[in-house]
Design a protein around this nucleic acid. Sequence first.
DNA 1: CGTTAAATAGAAACTGTTTCTATTTGCGAA
DNA 2: TTCGCAAATAGAAACAGTTTCTATTTAACG
Lengths: 146, 146
Amino acid sequence: MKPDFQPLLKSLSLKTTPKRIALLEILDDEKVYLSPEAIWKKMQKLFRSIGLPTVYRILDELHEGNIISRVLHPDRKLYYYLCRNEEHHHHFICVSCNKVEDLHFCAEKEIETLVVKGMKGKVLSHILQINGLCSRCLTEQVPAHG
Amino acid sequence: MKPDFQPLLKSLSLKTTPKRIALLEILDDEKVYLSPEAIWKKMQKLFRSIGLPTVYRILDELHEGNIISRVLHPDRKLYYYLCRNEEHHHHFICVSCNKVEDLHFCAEKEIETLVVKGMKGKVLSHILQINGLCSRCLTEQVPAHG
DNA sequence: CGTTAAATAGAAACTGTTTCTATTTGCGAA
DNA sequence: TTCGCAAATAGAAACAGTTTCTATTTAACG
């Protein structure tokens, strides 16, 4: 069940190139977040000649257009994944298998109150990221990395 | 009022070198988080010859020993600051002046419940970072960067 | 099909960080 | 206080992830 990404690209005034479609399909297939390099390696199986800069550029464009989300991993690298949730939410990241799960929880109101009333400041954005082990990795006793 | 950092270093089995003391004093003076390079520049005023790798190494050691905290900035660089709070807390970061304020708020319980009961997973760590404008920058209408 | 602006490959540059090796220095022992 | 050695450091170089640059290719529109 591959979604039709053409209208999505069109809405961002991006041309529908095979590489953009392939990258979106790769992210759509994965339930884990991927590094640009991992995406590049998957792309190389589909295109005999594709540069890493192309992957970076496409990721930037799609992230810019809010089609894909990215995670700032504790290892200081950026990881990307396709996020289908429109509403505001946060991420649970399994440090063992890299799976991302959306958490429909947000402490927005508490934060807003603390910052506005407590500090007389203003909230521009907030990041809530939970690192842990998903149910599968937990039961399988896979050693966590990081 | 400079604290005596010697026993602190000793407790980590780190030798009390002028550079380690100076770095701690620089961080103690600042109420903002600093990049390794910014710290290096301040160090260069005190030591005619100091390498950037030395700054990185000292920062790593102190961070390892839980003496200093670090922030993973949206610009993907690491910033460091001296954190005097022992208890678990989170950070408000002013994107205009880089000041860090501790927020004594934590959604730990809600997160725990969601992950354990909802996902049957396990929480290893969590990051809550609030980016905004502090009261001073807000009233001064300083344009925010980032 | 032809045109044109957008997209891409490949090389090279850039930046923050780490590693390596020879030299220097803090500090416990004598 | 001086000695000896492990720890700390300088400076160069390497490294990794990411970005920039330029010539070439390609999608989209008429």
